[in-house]
Design a protein around this nucleic acid. Structure first.
Lengths: 334, 334
DNA sequence: TTGTAAGCGTTATCAC
DNA sequence: GTGATAACGCTTACAA
């Protein structure tokens, strides 16, 4: 494992000269540089990132946090796509990504401590649990941060246009004759769930429907969707004409529950989801849904973060970037 | 951002004493230790991992490589589960994971160089492209490595029991009356694809079927599955009684192609996949498949890697750990 | 253009 | 039990 000293010795120059050659510095002759580069190659020299970031305070590495409590992990249908795209974008620029884990060695670190500990250049936070106290310190700090699907004040956020999406969904349902529409909200400790619920109420009331019926699913998953549907049925005397679910997994769970109850979708009620996960094309009935643009979300998040790292943007701006969504009509709606 | 020097100054002791207090060293008095720890906490001290690994040569971080060329990314139905579980296992022990990217800064690194560059403690390689030249140096090195689904000699590997799985699938098909069975292999630059193909041939011949019909899908995805089915149809005069696909995505693609051709599954032919991705429960017909135990694969990989890191195992052993699979019978088979 | 030397924040060795 | 001090590998003023 050779160092710049080894190279320097072999070439017969100072280590700082080697450093200059390696870092495309101007203050070095072409000849020396070529010579050094050749020796470096010959010796299979690789710089050491620890030593480098110790002096430069730049690690070329970006941390990713996701709320495993909200069941957001690498396997998540939607967010894994966002992360994949984010990864691709920042790698173009030479950054590497690593994942947060609560336990480092034998102590547990907050996000902010982790950032310091690892000399990270920035952090991406994917979805936020509003009950996570860990977040407040991060919010108040000045470190480069970007979030996806959070409503954190003073933190740049990339998020789908939930209002637009909800309206598209509801207007479509109404245009197809739905009188009563119920909502299965996502867990309300997630920001997107709150936004979609608010949008739901707002759109309905602007269309002159006085009461908005909804239940909250305990999680964003299939099982919670099923349970929520049963809760909904208890709440309403009649089956609503349509059900707008906060995401696809919940929608699919709801459809399953409806099947168990002997109902047919969309004959007895229409169901519409949110996300457009791959599954939705394959289920039967296939699922009408609001498509989120995960690629775009990932690249925009990367852009917003890199701008901060490069000091081109003041973080205090607290930009919120809305990404357009699209209604995908399939078989689960009349 | 305080350092051990700041703490030392405040407490009125040497930095080395602080270090001892922080690292549970024996050679320090209880009193001093308590005092130092209190001040450290008060100042919000967080160690610096770069400085630490520079001296200790241990980064507490594990690198993950996946073959994006084989379309194995974070979104992959199967491998994302393996990685998630691997992550969980190593985090328990205080390790963090980070992802390989070809470009670090402005130069591209081989896996081995990356390992050196980042002071990694070990590497997990998820699926291998046998054409990846980058791999050979890694194979010959002595660094802690574990792979999933590779056939690299002298590298500990965790892999499903493809032979067992293939036999279970084929025997089931035959028990249900299938005379002719064709195979859609995965891309043969992946090790698992080769194993499953070999197993297919071997099982059939051991059952007295002379010729084994198969085509190779160009990738492990839906689209390739569709294309492969069309290729298969051209190859065989009649539709085989059953089709054994190298994975679920391919199987699903094949079923779609069959539908397009006017065939019904399983009426006209049975289809069986491999992996048991979530989708398989929801498609219509739902897919009979060989279930891989991704949780177990992830934890076993972690175990094998940590053993090497802790020097409990010589890597040269080249252990290959087979994980049992399970046949999940659904509607796509008669 | 090249070299010297300090410094980044730790840990580790060895006196005291 | 405690404290100097070197070392880890690199970058960067500053001096030559």
């Amino acid at each position: 494992m050779s160092t710049i000293y080894d190279i320097a010795k072999k070439v017969g120059c100072a280590s700082s000269t080697v450093s200059k050659a390696l870092n495309n510095s101007k203050e070095i002759s072409k000849k020396r540089k070529a010579e050094i580069l050749a020796v470096a190659k010959e010796m299979g020299y690789v710089p050491n990132s620890s030593a480098r970031s110790l002096t430069t305070k730049k690690s070329w590495s970006i941390g990713i946090v996701f709320s495993e409590d909200l069941h957001i992990g690498l396997e998540h249908h939607f967010f894994s796509g966002v992360i994949q795209e984010f990864k691709k974008s920042v790698e173009e620029l030479g950054y590497e990504i690593s994942f947060y884990s609560k336990k480092i060695g034998n102590q547990s670190l907050t996000y902010l401590e982790w950032f310091k500990y690892k000399d990270l250049d920035g952090i991406l936070i994917v979805t936020v649990d509003v009950e996570d106290e860990n977040l407040e310190a991060l919010r108040q700090s000045k470190i480069p941060v970007v979030t996806v699907d959070s409503g954190l004040i003073n933190v740049p956020t990339v998020i789908s246009d939930n209002f637009q999406g909800t309206r598209m969904a509801l207007e479509y349902l109404m245009s197809r004759g739905a009188e009563s529409i119920a909502h299965i909200a996502g867990p309300l400790r997630s920001f997107a769930a709150v936004e979609r619920l608010e949008a739901f109420k707002s759109v309905l009331s602007s269309c002159g429907r006085e009461e908005s019926v909804f239940v909250e699913a305990s999680n964003y998953d299939y099982k919670s969707g099923k349970e929520a549907l049963y809760k909904l049925i208890k709440l309403t005397k009649d089956l609503p004409d349509a059900i707008y679910a906060a995401n696809d997994d919940i929608a699919l769970g709801a459809i399953m529950a409806l099947k168990e109850l002997g109902y047919k979708v969309p004959r007895d009620t229409s169901v519409i989801g949110f996300d457009n996960i791959e599954l939705t094309r394959f289920t039967s009935p296939s699922l009408t849904t609001v498509k989120q643009d995960k690629r775009k979300i990932g690249t925009e998040a990367a852009k917003l973060l890199i701008e901060q790292i490069d000091k081109k943007t003041e973080r205090t701006k607290g930009i919120i970037k809305r990404i357009p969504v699209e209604l995908i009509i399939r078989e689960s709606t009349k």
